[in-house]
């Protein structure tokens, strides 16, 4: 009961999805299923919220090292959630001024907008920009001509880096038009069009097969690790 029914549910749901692809009247089911997934994922966020509360409340009550930061997280979480769910400071839709809940939840000037604009965007964008530094350190540390494969990797990166900035135009701008393929931008184009295309394609074909077999294992109940695979 605890294990068999879920496996049956998974198998039936999955097979219906496969069949729906070939049967035109059922084609909408696939979109519906995707929507249902999104609803479930949104509802599951309550579980995530509970996990956040449990983890940080425990850290605070245990007075673990750094529990003050847990407090920051919890307060930030609580404020954002209440401001957002209650649409604090959000004006109603201009056409329906009598219905206070009609406004867009993230309106310019509203508290949630402020939080998004001045807390979330700067921190996440800066985290994202840390990549520029890590890319540099990886180039220094990992791009070493240890063997033939590594030489190919770093050689390609070298050419494309040059070919895609002003340096490429500057260095090989003198090459006559008829030998354009030998300029840095030209070589970049060949790399992108031939080897990059071929490599990407082979990876994609392999991935498609990998996904197909993983999916099949789930549908047949062979892979049930998501339910715990052994008794």
């Amino acid at each position: 009961m605890k294990r068999t029914i879920p496996i049956i549910i998974a198998a039936v749901a999955g097979l219906v999805m496969v069949v729906a692809f070939f049967v035109p009247p059922l084609i909408d089911w696939r979109e519906t299923a995707e929507e249902w997934f999104n609803i479930l994922a949104a509802v599951a966020m309550i579980l995530g919220g509970a996990s956040i509360l449990a983890m940080h409340l425990r850290r605070i009550s245990d007075q673990k090292r750094g529990w003050g930061f847990s407090l920051v997280t919890l307060i930030a979480f609580a404020i954002t959630l209440s401001v957002g769910l209650f649409k604090v400071g959000v004006p109603p839709m201009a056409e329906y001024p009598d219905r206070p809940w009609t406004g867009e939840y993230i309106t310019h000037g509203a508290p949630l907008w402020w939080i998004f604009q001045y807390l979330i965007v700067p921190i996440t964008a800066t985290m994202f920009s840390l990549l520029a530094f890590f890319v540099a350190s990886a180039a220094f540390r990992a791009f070493r001509a240890k063997n033939a494969e590594a030489v190919l990797l770093l050689g390609t990166a070298f050419i494309v880096l040059l070919g895609r900035s002003y340096a490429g135009t500057l260095l090989t701008g003198w090459v006559p038009e008829s030998y354009a393929a030998l300029t840095l931008p030209g070589m970049t184009d060949t790399i992108m069009g031939v080897f990059n295309t071929a490599g990407q394609r082979a990876i994609m074909i392999g991935i498609a097969l990998g996904i197909a077999s993983t999916s099949l294992k789930i549908l047949l109940g062979i892979d049930r690790s998501y339910l715990g695979n052994r008794h």
């Binding site: 966020m45 579980l47 996990s51 983890m55 979330i120 921190i123 996440t124 964008a125």
Partner: peptide, 9 residues
């Protein structure tokens, strides 16, 4: 445990 859906968070 769950952290956040936001990628860089």
């Amino acid at each position: 445990y769950y952290i956040t859906d936001e990628q860089f968070g």
